[in-house]
Computed example of a mutant assay.
Amino acid sequence: MSKDKTVNAASVAATPSSHTAEAFASTQAAQDAVDFIEIDEVLTLRRTIVRAPAPKGTVLFLHGFPETLMVWKGIATTLARDYDVHAFDWPGYGQSSRPILARFSYAPRDYAQVLKAYIERAGIDRSNLVIYSTDIAALPVLLLALDEPTIARQIIVGDFAPFDRPQYMWENLQNLKAEPTASPTRAYMNKTSDEILENVHRRGLSPAEQFDLPIDAQHDMTRSWSLDGMTSADAFAHYYANFTRDQHYLEANLTRLKTPVKVIWGEKDLYITSEMGTEFAGKISAKLDILPGIGHFPHLQSPEQTVEEIRASFR
């Protein structure tokens, strides 16, 4: 891999088209903490780092669909009193690279290698690292942990699909896994992108439980939906094209999973029901917290709960 390279806000204009000043405008509030890091000749990730005055450890947040690193901003600010906090945009999301399929597959196992490279390039001390991963981010970190059991002191995962269990998944997610339903589902997601971005976090919740996203996160997701000829739905569909293969690999190799894992799940998750979390936690003998009244995005609906989960992991 090539030498580590970061790009600060002052030099954004010199980066590829995805990283123009206009695209970067959505993160002005956190400008001092945001830059870009080169993973290899194909991939450059937008990231944020919030430093603690005297860090007790490091937290790495990994987002899901259709999110960007901006969803972690408030949580990161709170935790940075005691911990260094990192987050980045996955390839295909936010302002990170969106290479063509011939150069990058967007498969969970390839995201796992992106994660490994980021930890190495960022110089993070694995022995005092907690990784919090949700949705599409959870399978990659677990795949990495199979080969790198010391990747973190603890991994927190939730609201994802570790196993090939269609009965626990929302119909549109099932449909993305294979043709002939995958292509029309992808096209429909692109056609209805405005509705997805407006309501994805509300589905399955009662009116009293529904919530709005922070405005800067909402704007960043919207502005970042389509860049360099690829949408976040396209990247999501490419991920799902390889999903079943990588789910089967994880399940077949669970005995190799030695990194401490905690599982959290929203009780009202419409997309991937809590039965999935119960089965996964049982198979790996992990602690499971089902969060009452919470949907698919616990970190957005109850950020204080996420902060407490992180603090508990360092005790």
Rank of each mutant, 00 (worst) to 15 (best):
I264T: 05
T222R: 14
M276G: 11
G277P: 12
L270A: 12
R245S: 11
N253T: 03
I272E: 03
A286T: 10
T278K: 15
E251H: 08
T231H: 03
A252G: 04
T273G: 11
A281P: 07
W265I: 01
A217K: 00
D220C: 07
L250D: 00
D246S: 03
K258Q: 13
S285W: 10
R256A: 13
H219C: 09
A237P: 02
I284Q: 09
A286G: 08
K283D: 04
Q218E: 13
M230P: 07
D234G: 08
Q247M: 10
D269N: 09
F280I: 08
D216E: 14
T244D: 06
R223I: 02
P260W: 00
H248V: 14
T231S: 15
T231L: 05
S274G: 10
T278L: 07
Y249M: 06
T259D: 01
M230R: 15
Q247C: 09
I264P: 01
E251F: 03
T231N: 05
D228S: 12
H238T: 08
T231K: 05
Q218H: 13
G266T: 04
Y239P: 07
S226K: 12
E279P: 01
N242V: 02
A217W: 03
D246I: 01
D220G: 10
A235N: 06
A286W: 02
L254C: 01
N242L: 11
A233D: 00
H238F: 15
L257G: 04
K262P: 01
L227S: 02
D220Q: 07
G229F: 02
M230A: 14
T231W: 00
A281S: 09
D269S: 03
H248D: 14
Q247I: 05
D269A: 01
A286I: 06
R223C: 11
W225I: 02
